[in-house]
């Protein structure tokens, strides 16, 4: 059972008085259970802020956020997060890093270990389970972070530019990897990215945000068949959607 999320008039302002920065919103949004939503928008428009609100890491200044029909009350084990930086602990092995949620949440040891090893195998990291993160490439670190986010089998996955710091080839590889496995997982996902192609390749819907304070400027359905593959980017429909989003981002909003 995956869960959906709902935002009503959600906004976020950092600081007070003269220093106040309106970072986000107001935003109204429904993320259907099991859907994959991508968010694109200019740098500094409040994408990470939105993700942190959905994760329960920050509190909105106004509006309501609900998950699975109930008001959000801080972080939850039903939500897995992959941060922009991989944030793996350098003192722990890759396996220990992936097992962190199990330790913190007190999940039974053996099944968690089996699941961790399975996820590492799925992401091609089996040989690195006992290695320290310093021995991993950037792409491998992000895959390990993805394994960690998936360990407790969250209903919702939040990804904040997870492949942003990687080279183009690695990004594409990881996008396809995520796409392949997405269809099986059937979870709700919100992906923040600055890569339009990545957004269209993965998502059911692409939200285009306006510059700060970020609002949803357009909500574009991606009606491409699944599973998406390495050939999907050649689909004329793919190119068409991509072009539409690009125009939305680069033409100033009418006032």
């Amino acid at each position: 059972m995956s869960q959906g999320m709902r935002l009503d008039g959600v906004s976020k302002t950092f600081g007070e008085g003269a220093q106040a920065v309106e970072a986000l919103g107001p935003i109204d949004l429904v993320i259907e259970a099991g859907s994959f939503v991508a968010v694109v928008g200019p740098s500094g428009c409040g994408k990470s802020t939105l993700l942190r609100l959905l994760a329960g890491l920050d509190l909105q200044t106004a509006g309501r956020i609900a998950r699975a029909g109930r008001p959000l009350e801080g972080p939850s084990r039903d939500v897995g997060i992959v941060f922009q930086e991989h944030v793996l602990f350098p003192w722990a092995t890759v396996l220990e890093n992936v097992l962190l949620p199990a330790d913190v949440l007190g999940l039974p040891r053996e099944p968690a270990r089996a699941r961790a090893l399975h996820l590492l195998e799925l992401t091609g990291l089996s040989d690195f389970a006992e290695k320290r993160p310093q021995h991993l490439s950037g792409g491998m670190k992000q895959r390990a972070a993805l394994c960690r986010a998936l360990l407790a089998d969250p209903q919702i996955l939040l990804l904040d530019e997870p492949f942003g710091a990687l080279d183009a080839l690695t990004r594409e590889e990881l996008s396809l990897f995520l796409s392949r496995n997405w269809d099986e997982l059937g979870r709700t996902a919100l992906l923040i990215t600055h890569d339009i192609e990545e957004a269209v390749l993965l998502a059911d819907r692409v939200l285009v945000m306006s510059p700060r304070p970020g609002r949803i400027r357009a909500d574009i359905a991606v009606d491409l068949p699944r599973p998406r593959t390495i050939d999907t980017p050649r689909d004329p429909r793919f190119v068409e959607i991509k072009q539409k989003i690009r125009e939305l981002i680069f033409t100033p909003a009418e006032l």
Binding site: G74, S76, R77, I81, E85
Partner: peptide, 11 residues
């Protein structure tokens, strides 16, 4: 970011 990670797990 590491503190956020721990917080996201309700540690």
């Amino acid at each position: 970011p590491m503190l956020d990670l721990m917080r996201s797990l309700n540690a």
